[in-house]
Every structure is written in C-alpha cells, then in structure tokens.
Design a protein around this nucleic acid. Structure first.
Ligand code: FES
Ligand code: FES
Lengths: 134, 134
DNA sequence: ACAAAATAAGACTAAATTAGTCCGATATAA
DNA sequence: TTATATCGGACTAATTTAGTCTTATTTTGT
C-alpha cells in the first residue's frame, strides 16, 4: 500500500504536539496519548524511536518527558517518516541489501526512478515547522 | 510502508511488456510470467484486474491473450497503481468511508494534504508511454 | 531511604494485509 | 472435440503492522 503506517501517523501527531510546546516545557507520553487518542504503550515505543533518531530528546525520571531535539525548521518530513519506517523506497529492489533475480533484465527500477526522486526531494523540503503550521 | 506492493510491481511489468507489442499482437499470461519471472496464477489474477479496469483488453480462448485497452499515452501511472491497490490516500483518514474518532480535533489530515496533492498530481502526469520508454 | 512518576528495552500476541495457490467454468481456434 | 486461453472465486501461507506486557532504570520530592 502506498500509505503511511499508523505508527507513522502517531509519530507525526506527537511531533506536532511537542512542537507546539513553549520553550523549556516537556510533554509526557501519557499527556500526548490522551490528547491525541493514541494507545499509551504504543506511543511510548514510537517516542523512544524518535529519541534514538534524535528528532526529540527525552528527560527521564519524574517530571520527565519529551522536547524537540532541534528547531522545527530543521526536522524534515523525510526524517520523521524514515525514523519510523526506515529508508523510503518506492520499490523493494531499490533497497541496497536486496538482491533481485530480475536485476539484469528489469526495466522497472529505472522507470520508477523519477517518481522516487520526485517524492524524496519533496519529503526533504517539508519541515516540521510547515507540518505544525496547518 | 510507503512502497508499492509486489502485485503492483507485477502489474507495471506486465503493462510494460504489453505496451511493447506490435499492433495486433497479444501476449498471454504465460508468456509474460515466464519473461518477467512472475508466478503464473498470480499474474493471471492481476491481468484480470487490469482488464476489469479497462487498462488492457483480453481475448479469450485459444490464441487469446492481452493487448492495451487504449494508447499508452492515455494510461496514467495513477490508473495503473489504483487498478491494483485502490484509491491512493497517504493517510487512512482521507478515505471517504473511514470515520475517525479524531476527526474534530485532528490537524494531521490538513497538514499532509499538500503531500497528497503533490503525489497524485505527479502520478496523473506520468503515462505508460513514459514508463515503457526507459 | 524511599515512593512516585517517568522513560528504556525487549519479548510477546493479535490482527490485518499481502502473496500466492488451486479449482471449476467459460470461451475460442483448429 | 481437444487444446489453449481467460474468468472468478475460495482458499492458504507468509509477512507486516498494531498493540500489549513486563522488568529495569532514571529522576524528583518527601
Ligand atoms: S524487480 Fe528487481 S530489479 Fe526490478
Ligand atoms: S487521524 Fe483521523 S482525522 Fe486525523
């Protein structure tokens, strides 16, 4: 399917939420989960993943929570999606580690390259600031 | 995942193949399957779906097979993909029949609208002629 | 010291989707 | 009437996605 996964949707919602915080504030997983109607323990996992990719930073312990890892203008849509779904490849055969039996005679890869390029360049051009604005 | 399904890849390969035929010629499912290394009975299903969507037309019986339903320039990438995967919606909540509990306070739908628009307009602008050329 | 409130990490289960198979029916040419 | 096709649908298997649970660790406040 040509669709974002629920996890990715949740990640984007959470990032929107965190981006809307005042400087110095943090949001807990619980807060975000309640606010956006996301299962808490699933969201927790997603926030951990975003932390590992340094899109957000976490403060552990009581009164802990999450805040943006850098300015919203410096977080691209591509980074947000790839943090959850991994590298974006319109077709599997473009993934590096994938060896395809059709490799020598396949024309599909090349045919779809423009789409791949178009899409990724767009995703790199949109930032969290843009996404949070709407 | 933000990826075309195998079925869709197979459909595109088959359409490339059919598009390369001389006027008046047809290709059988078997031929295409062997040529592109696609499981025969799966490809048969896919070709039936493309037929129902009138991207190709089928000739039944002995010496039957498939040919393009209209000129390659008049078959868009959007039509090819949607024939197999159904309408393209970047997020589930944009699908008409889907009623979301977050509908009244959700900002995500709007935020991703530009991406949805950008993508679909591109997919409508590319035709089988373009795809087959590479 | 200790309790409460968080995140971290990983194993696990359940649900949904995708990929692929199989079979009986129908159509058509030779 | 036989061989070669498509048609349609039910079915199974494999993979991916979605979601849960449990235990450990970090930090603050009392
Ligand atoms: S399908 Fe694998 S290389 Fe094109
Ligand atoms: S998530 Fe359903 S309306 Fe946005």
């Amino acid at each position: 399917m040509f669709k974002l996964s629920k996890k990715t949707e949740y990640a984007l919602m959470a990032l929107q939420h965190i981006a809307s915080l005042d400087k110095g504030q943090v949001a807990t997983a619980k807060e975000i989960a309640e606010n956006k109607l996301i299962p808490h323990s699933l969201l927790a996992k997603i926030l951990q993943q975003l932390t590992r990719h340094q899109l957000i930073l976490s403060l552990q312990g009581a009164h802990g929570g999450y805040a943006l890892g850098r300015k919203a203008e410096e977080i691209t849509l591509a980074q947000m999606i790839e943090a959850i779904e991994g590298p974006i490849h319109i077709i599997e055969c473009n993934e590096s580690r994938y060896s395809c039996q059709r490799d020598d005679f396949c024309t599909l890869k090349n045919s779809l390259n423009p789409l791949q390029k178009q899409l990724t360049s767009y995703l790199h051009s949109v930032t969290l600031a843009d996404v949070a604005a709407s």
